[in-house]
Amino acid sequence: MHDFQLRTLLSQFFQEDIGFGDLSAEAIFANEHATGTIIAKQPGIFCASSLITQGYQLLSEQINVTTLVNDGEPLKKGDVIAKIEGPVREILTGERVILNLIQHMSGIATATAHAVQVLDDPNIRICDTRKTTPGLRMLDKYAVKSGGGSNHRFGLDDGVMIKDNHIAACGSIANAMARVRKAVGHMVKIEVEIETRQQLEEAIAAKADVIMFDNCSPETVREFRALTPANIITEASGGITLENLAEFRHSGVDMISLGYLTHSVKALDISLDI
């Protein structure tokens, strides 16, 4: 995460939450100082130490943050993640936004690490998708990397992905690929989503850079991978959950993308105590 982009996001989030002022903290406190600790309430993988530091620096230059856990490191229940010292009013004003974000990001990092462990195949990368909450994509994808995963496209301008609706509206994979080749430069990779052997053969003939086996069983993924030239990157996606993920072990694909890592992950329980 770049500091400038992170500070811009945090400013927007604080503006939403604080509005014209924290009526509670401003009514109760003046210049009192306090020490707070951010504590893990359950085990998991931590993410976003810089978010704590950058967030509190935005609220007050008098706040000192000492982080004790690095991104991607495991947490045990009761571990102290960070210590915060400074004006109690600003510490409490920033509490909810900062906790919400590090809980969310640590939840994604934890889920990603769990998926990597369950798959247990160093030759296949676990990837995210674009199924992120608008405004949080940079944070979500950073959290996936902190959990040992890899990033798929960041946005529509990051690469070409010809999906089922593109193919249906265009008439065929060949037509869609031909139009794309005329429109994009040689530096842009083109991925094609397929579901059948016929579509696979079309995508190979059209010289796709990446082929996604969408909503395919582990057996079909292995079959399709065996039919795909080694120079084409392969990806499995759709219908893959934590419950059936291990069935794709040693399937031969380069990547498995999992939407649930970001669209329905459970936040890690983390609290701030003064």
Rank of each mutant, 00 (worst) to 15 (best):
13 F>E: 14
225 R>Y: 05
49 S>I: 06
150 S>K: 14
77 K>V: 10
158 D>A: 11
257 S>M: 07
93 T>C: 00
181 R>S: 04
12 Q>T: 10
165 N>M: 11
36 G>K: 10
53 T>V: 15
243 E>D: 14
55 G>I: 09
117 Q>W: 00
186 H>L: 10
90 E>G: 07
193 E>L: 04
80 V>I: 15
220 T>D: 12
212 M>L: 14
39 I>G: 13
30 A>K: 15
152 H>Q: 08
258 L>K: 02
209 D>H: 15
9 L>C: 07
143 A>S: 12
264 S>W: 10
201 E>P: 08
7 R>I: 09
25 A>P: 00
248 F>L: 05
172 S>G: 12
179 R>P: 01
196 T>F: 06
99 L>F: 05
198 Q>I: 09
55 G>P: 12
116 V>S: 01
35 T>G: 00
197 R>L: 12
118 V>D: 04
63 I>T: 04
122 P>H: 12
135 G>F: 00
51 L>G: 03
16 E>Q: 14
114 H>I: 09
52 I>P: 03
267 A>Y: 05
114 H>G: 06
96 R>F: 02
205 A>K: 14
213 F>N: 03
144 V>D: 07
79 D>F: 07
108 I>A: 07
39 I>Y: 00
243 E>T: 12
273 D>Q: 15
76 K>Q: 15
107 G>Y: 06
208 A>C: 08
60 S>G: 08
206 A>G: 08
262 T>C: 00
227 L>A: 13
118 V>Y: 03
101 L>F: 10
62 Q>E: 15
94 G>Q: 03
137 R>L: 09
58 L>I: 06
173 I>V: 12
192 V>I: 15
49 S>C: 04
258 L>N: 02
178 A>W: 03
248 F>A: 07
10 L>C: 01
227 L>K: 13
167 I>W: 01
268 L>N: 06
3 D>T: 15
68 L>Y: 14
183 A>R: 11
229 P>W: 13
173 I>M: 10
29 F>M: 02
16 E>N: 11
146 S>F: 07
214 D>F: 10
215 N>V: 00
65 V>R: 01
184 V>E: 04
19 G>I: 11
41 K>V: 00
158 D>L: 03
156 L>F: 09
188 V>R: 11
31 N>E: 13
41 K>T: 02
227 L>H: 08
131 K>I: 06
269 D>F: 11
206 A>L: 01
36 G>P: 05
141 K>S: 01
198 Q>V: 11
28 I>E: 03
213 F>M: 06
53 T>G: 05
244 N>S: 09
258 L>E: 01
168 A>H: 13
117 Q>T: 15
86 G>K: 10
149 G>W: 13
96 R>W: 04
189 K>R: 14
179 R>C: 04
80 V>G: 03
89 R>G: 05
168 A>Y: 13
259 G>K: 11
3 D>A: 14
269 D>L: 08
272 L>M: 13
34 A>M: 08
61 E>H: 15
264 S>H: 12
200 L>Q: 04
245 L>N: 01
172 S>V: 11
271 S>P: 08
101 L>E: 11
100 N>A: 12
246 A>C: 02
263 H>V: 06
141 K>R: 10
251 S>V: 09
5 Q>W: 12
245 L>K: 03
53 T>D: 13
270 I>L: 13
26 E>V: 07
42 Q>P: 07
128 D>C: 08
163 K>W: 08
70 N>Q: 14
262 T>F: 02
32 E>R: 09
209 D>I: 08
194 I>Q: 13
46 F>T: 12
2 H>T: 08
6 L>V: 09
139 L>P: 10
